[in-house]
């Protein structure tokens, strides 16, 4: 049992990272801190997906020595890391940056309206003004 836990140590580290991000999103009052927590959460999930493609003793998924006329040799799949999670997570990284950009634009608008970025102060101002 302990061997099983230790041999999958990277999954536990990703879960710890994900929980750090979740705590920052829920427990912190500052909106920029919440955004940083969201980034950490996203990258923990991307780490998990990329780590599922890793094989022991394999190399990067770039073909060498094939093609250009003598393309009849058999490609051994076990020699190359699975590139499918990489391609999917490439899209996820770009989407996460787009999400961050929209969130930062919203954050600047909130700062212009309420002149603060702390969640409790914004809620207090909203309660006092009655909107």
């Amino acid at each position: 049992m302990l061997d099983y836990v230790i041999s999958k140590y990277n999954f536990w580290i990703y879960i710890i990272l994900m929980m750090i991000g979740l705590y920052a999103m829920i427990g912190k009052k500052n909106l920029v801190k919440k955004l940083i927590g969201m980034n950490i959460f996203q990258s923990a999930i991307i780490l998990f997906y990329v780590s599922t493609g890793v094989k022991a003793g394999a190399t990067v998924p770039i073909l060498s020595g094939h093609g250009h006329g003598h393309g009849h040799e058999v490609i051994e799949v076990a020699k190359y890391i699975n590139p499918l999670p990489h391609v999917l997570m490439l899209t996820a990284i770009v989407v996460s940056i787009a999400t961050t950009g929209v969130a930062i634009a919203t954050l600047i608008l909130i700062y212009r309206k309420y002149n603060t970025l702390e969640e409790d102060e914004i809620l207090m101002i909203r309660k006092e003004t009655g909107v």
């Binding site: 990489h86 997570m89 990284i93 961050t100």
Partner: peptide, 22 residues
Amino acid sequence: MGAVDVAFTEASVGAGVGTVLF
């Protein structure tokens, strides 16, 4: 981990553009 394409996307987009935006 051998994911070189993800690595340079993260270095340019995640660390570069993300930090500049923040």
